[in-house]
Design a protein around this nucleic acid. Structure first.
Lengths: 355, 355
DNA sequence: TTGTAGGCGTTATCAC
DNA sequence: GTGATAACGCCTACAA
């Protein structure tokens, strides 16, 4: 079934069918109704390829999740809670706007999936998130005019075809730090991810700012440890190393830099036989479902995932439909501190050493 | 950049470019290399729309998650753990086969998103899962020849364009029941979802079979309760009602029909002040990440999600590429019982009543 | 081995 | 208000 057949059945020309389809004004009421009836009757939908060919933008957005190759024994980051939630919201919002979302996991070696989808005009725009995008790729995408939203990748938009949206990483780090300080802690540690990540740097900076403002200098050599940001094992290993290193004088509070790390941190603390919050208070950055079910449930500070999805998708669609905007960057303002029972007030006497 | 320009630059005809692009044999080595060099140099990818227009199937699969309208205060099923995991695996497998996955949440009122995407030839095939698809829609899809995989929707394939893949619902139900029986329980309850769902019926049937085989008649009126299958609140409410109804003589073991319900059941039991497994042993059907972090961690019986994703995606691609297959239905054979500490051996003396 | 011609289904342009 | 015609970029005959 194509527009010629519809035209024949409705006794009009293909042109008129097209006009009806696209809601052009210059069609008489009678004709319009006749055509619409035939269309409905035959369950006709215009061919997307043909439409796309004559120049119309298609209604497809690409969602690219950057992911390093997974080690065989562990989940890929595309299976971490934040991405799950984000994808679900993004699909929903995309659909509500009459678009469809095509999601792709991008590994280091398959970077040109992004080029392929743009150059073949399979998508009209894309959102990139996850692991850090390298500078070369970014410069290429920017130069080629791909309409993109970058999430937590860089701070400022480099070109009018690229919109930047970021989590309020600094504020989340700061609120987490402030809460621990407020409960009287002074020996406060932080485990986080790869420092080439914008989100890692900003969260850490916010965290340090909170401590410094309270007159507690943050001793990085002692209280900071790195692990893979988007792996549970990253949190586990970093926490183990950090507590091991400080085993003679343990910190009384710890902040995990990401939700995924938080779960690893939780397990590491438990496996070392320490109690939360009696021995160590724990807080994380980012929300996770699992944090509700641990015992104790874990406190977190987070930005609303739905807001992020909404902002990224809606701005991208605007960019596509309006052609180009002045370079712009957004930070989602609302940050929420969710207190559960993983933080206790610091008893000034330190808990001393434990293995 | 199009094939004409590439042709000009490589001093050949568009036809030759096309031949190189599609790996046809009859191109001399020299020509092929020259053309490929130009293609690479100009980062050229053939226009997907034009390709699609001349008849080639595109490389896009649709994933349709049927979801009833969400009540404002609760997650949609598209945010339940199983779908999350499935989507992540499905994207991965789809990409590995050179296809892309377009995911859509289908609400009752927007059923014709499926028609639209097929009729506009935006996708070459689709997978349908989630809430129950109504008979009319199914008949329509079948008649129109949409290439589809139905997951946990119906038992038998109705047509050669429709492949049926099911979880081993019966076996999962049976193993869950058997485990509770093995631990000596006789007062065993079951909370599950809408009985119009294939998965609900089969799980329940398997569960009853296990009990009956052990000489324990299953008293549905007493020990069975329904709630929304894909809502945490469904598990919560059903469990509350069931325990309330039996408050004078509580069951000693309970099986939740889905992972999502399981978490609601867990909360309901906890909120009633009962202990797991001392007062009630708990097992669920389906795996969830959260079940690992509860205390105690929850036992589940499940079929491997990755297997399901692999089977659905790979079979769909075969169907697309081979045109049509004889109607076929698959059940994933491997079922795993994951014992954590939520089940205890039944002390023959019943725990008696508790509010 | 390579090139030429025609058509896929739609929309935009121009004429009536 | 409506219809004819020419693109869009590619692939598949068919011809050389």
């Amino acid at each position: 079934m194509n527009s010629s057949e519809i035209a024949k059945l409705a006794c009009v020309s293909r042109t008129t069918v097209s006009r009806v389809l696209n809601g052009h004004a210059s069609v008489s009421e009678g004709t319009r109704e006749r055509v619409e009836a035939v269309i409905r009757e035959h369950n006709y939908f215009p061919d997307a390829a043909a439409r796309n060919l004559v120049g119309k933008q298609n209604k497809v957005l690409g969602l690219f999740i950057m992911d390093v190759a997974a080690t065989s024994d562990e989940y890929t980051i595309s299976r971490s809670q934040f991405f799950y939630d984000y994808i679900a919201f993004a699909i929903d919002i995309t659909n509500r706007h009459g678009y469809n979302l095509m999601t792709t996991i991008v590994h280091e070696d398959s970077m040109d999936d992004i080029d392929r989808l743009f150059q073949s005009r399979s998508i009209s725009g894309g959102i990139i998130m996850g692991d850090h995008l390298d500078q070369n790729a970014l410069a290429r995408f920017s130069a080629r005019g791909y309409k993109l939203v970058l999430y937590n990748q860089i701070r400022r938009s480099p070109a009018s075809n690229i919109i930047v949206v970021n989590y309020d990483n600094f504020k989340c780090g700061r609120l987490a730090g402030e809460e621990l300080v407020r409960q009287g802690h002074t020996k406060i540690a932080h485990v986080t991810g790869e420092p080439n990540k914008l989100s890692v740097r900003d969260r850490l900076e916010g965290f340090e700012t909170a401590l410094t403002a309270a007159g507690i200098p943050f001793d990085r050599a002692r209280y900071l440890e790195y692990g893979a940001f988007n792996r549970r094992s990253g949190g586990y290993g970093a926490t183990q190393r950090l507590l091991q290193r400080n085993r003679d004088d343990l910190p009384t509070a710890l902040c995990a830099g990401s939700a995924t790390m938080l779960m690893g941190t939780f397990e590491a603390i438990r496996d070392l036989g320490l109690r939360i919050p009696e021995d160590i208070s724990l807080i994380g950055i980012d929300e996770v479902d699992t944090a509700i079910y641990t015992s104790p449930p874990l406190s977190v500070v987070s930005t609303c995932c739905e807001e992020i999805a909404k902002l990224t998708v809606v701005r991208l669609i605007e960019l596509i439909e309006q052609g180009s905007v002045t370079p712009c960057d957004y930070v989602i303002p609302k940050v929420t501190l969710t207190l559960r029972s993983s933080i206790s007030t610091c008893k000034s006497g330190s808990p001393g050493s434990k293995p």
